[in-house]
């Protein structure tokens, strides 16, 4: 390396004076520092301004892209799986709701048949007046039978006795007994069903009305067709002792 200046000791003032005096050495330094400073500032500005990927090499970008693609694939697969799970859960919930609805419907039907739930609907109210002891079990059974033939779905006696499959009709000294409950006169029969058919079922020749109003009994029957008959008395279901589902 050629020596431009011989190393000679200088005092401090001379050094500062030399430092202040412009010369070629200083000029070279100035140019070099200017270039480096400008380059650094440009670089700093560009890396602060540009997004971080601008300065990356092609290899790095390819690698980055590969990573992103792999990640996208994984996430897409995850999304698909989650959507499948969601669909399965939704359809499962639907099926469960449908099953619950069906079960509720069955329970309602069976409850009405077994007399464990109150029922409401169009029907008739039949009021039978007769001298004490004149009404027999035969007439009562026949009346119930005719109402059932005419399509009565729910039958109630005297607002307190719900007739179900196990109901029975008996007779004591005091009068009629249905399901262990004495039936006082006059007897009212509420029946839910087609009110016209029920009326005809009671009125036909030789039916309930003509029997009760015959000279032998001497009573009277009043049939009222109603848009809404409400039956609230319930029957207590008994657990079968012998029968079991086959």
């Amino acid at each position: 390396m050629p020596e431009s200046a011989a190393p000679k000791p200088r005092d401090l003032g001379g050094a500062i004076a030399g430092w202040l005096r412009p010369n070629r050495k200083q000029l070279v330094w100035a140019v070099a520092l200017c270039v480096v400073a400008a380059a650094i500032v440009i670089q700093v500005q560009s890396s602060a301004k540009d997004d971080q990927y601008a300065a990356l090499r092609r290899d790095d970008l390819v690698q980055l892209l590969d990573g992103l693609t792999t990640e996208t694939d994984q996430l897409t697969a995850e999304v698909a799986e989650l959507e499948r799970t969601r669909d399965a859960l939704a359809s499962g919930a639907d099926a469960e709701a449908v099953a619950a609805q069906e079960a509720q419907k069955r329970a309602d039907t069976l409850g009405i048949l077994a007399g464990t739930v109150a029922a409401v609907g169009p029907g008739v109210r039949i009021t039978i007046s007769a001298p004490p002891g004149a009404l027999t079990t035969d007439i009562m059974l026949e009346a119930i039978q005719e109402l059932r033939d005419a399509g009565a779905e729910v039958i109630e006696i005297n607002d307190s006795i719900r007739l179900v499959a196990q109901s029975w009709v008996g007779q004591t000294q005091e009068g009629l007994v249905i399901d262990d409950q004495a039936v006082s006169l006059p007897i009212t029969i509420d029946a839910i069903g087609d009110s016209h058919a029920l009326t005809e079922g009671a009125k036909f020749r030789g039916g309930l009305v003509s029997q009760v109003e015959s000279d032998r009994i001497g009573g009277s029957v009043d049939i009222e067709q109603l848009d809404e008959v409400e039956i609230t008395s319930l029957a207590t279901p008994r657990t079968p002792r012998y029968a079991r589902p086959a």
Partner: peptide, 22 residues
Amino acid sequence: MLAILGLIAGVVLAIIWRPDMP
């Protein structure tokens, strides 16, 4: 002295000029 001036000139130039890096 010139060296310091050159440094400052470089910074100022880059900031004012704002060249787009190729």
